[in-house]
Design a protein around this nucleic acid. Structure first.
Lengths: 108, 108
DNA sequence: TCAATCCATCGGCAATTTCCGATGGGAATT
DNA sequence: AATTCCCATCGGAAATTGCCGATGGATTGA
């Protein structure tokens, strides 16, 4: 993941609705949720939510495929992992000492 | 780190100038850089950069303390670590299987 | 004390983001 | 074929963000 992709992903996640949506999709991974379920969960209008979803999709954080009449939305864990790695690389770059506490905390 | 703090940090890092600045400060951690050095690196006006710096500071990603006439800016690695952990927790929540590849990549 | 340096804040303008209702295309059901 | 359902896109209004020059407070050095 390069800096431009990271910026797009960070911007996508920096909005309450989009972060909530993404976290909900991660919790439901890898099955996913339909767009309608997500709209209902946010309480926003359908059109407004659609634009939020497009932002997440453009960032590669969410992928969708049709299932019957519905669209099934799925979090892309690989992209999340790439974003985390991008941030962690900054933190580690030539300084493994700074990164050790992070690795310890991550041993979930 | 709660969701509101995470949102503030994500928004702070989602701007090219602020992400560049933060990465530069991480590279210079823990010594830091003066505000003037950062202004020069970005090429923006002093006032514009000052507002960017305030966004990073409000998010807890950058701390500053006076040193003579200058202000020394330092990246707060703990906050970065907390943000990474916040994102990774979503990814791991009850699903350690999803997180193992991340840990493997992080072994830098 | 006086001038110079560093940086935060203000006022204002332009661009972007966010929200909504309305419209319309595509797919399943009748 | 007609209807219903699901969702993307359009147009427009309101709010936010990003940029700058100018101003002023704080501190150092002459």
């Amino acid at each position: 993941m390069d800096q431009e992709q990271a910026l797009t992903a960070l911007a996508a996640l920096s909005h309450p609705t989009r972060l909530d949506t993404f976290r909900m999709l991660v919790r439901h991974a890898p099955k996913g949720c339909t767009t309608g379920e997500l709209v209902e969960a946010t309480g926003l209008s359908q059109s407004t939510f659609s634009t939020h979803l497009a932002v997440l999709a453009k960032a590669g954080l969410v992928r969708s495929h049709k299932q019957g009449r519905h669209h099934l939305q799925c979090a892309d864990i690989d992209t999340l992992r790439a974003l985390i790695l991008f941030l962690a690389t900054d933190c580690c770059q030539g300084r493994a000492d700074l990164c050790e506490p992070l690795l310890a905390d991550l041993a979930c």
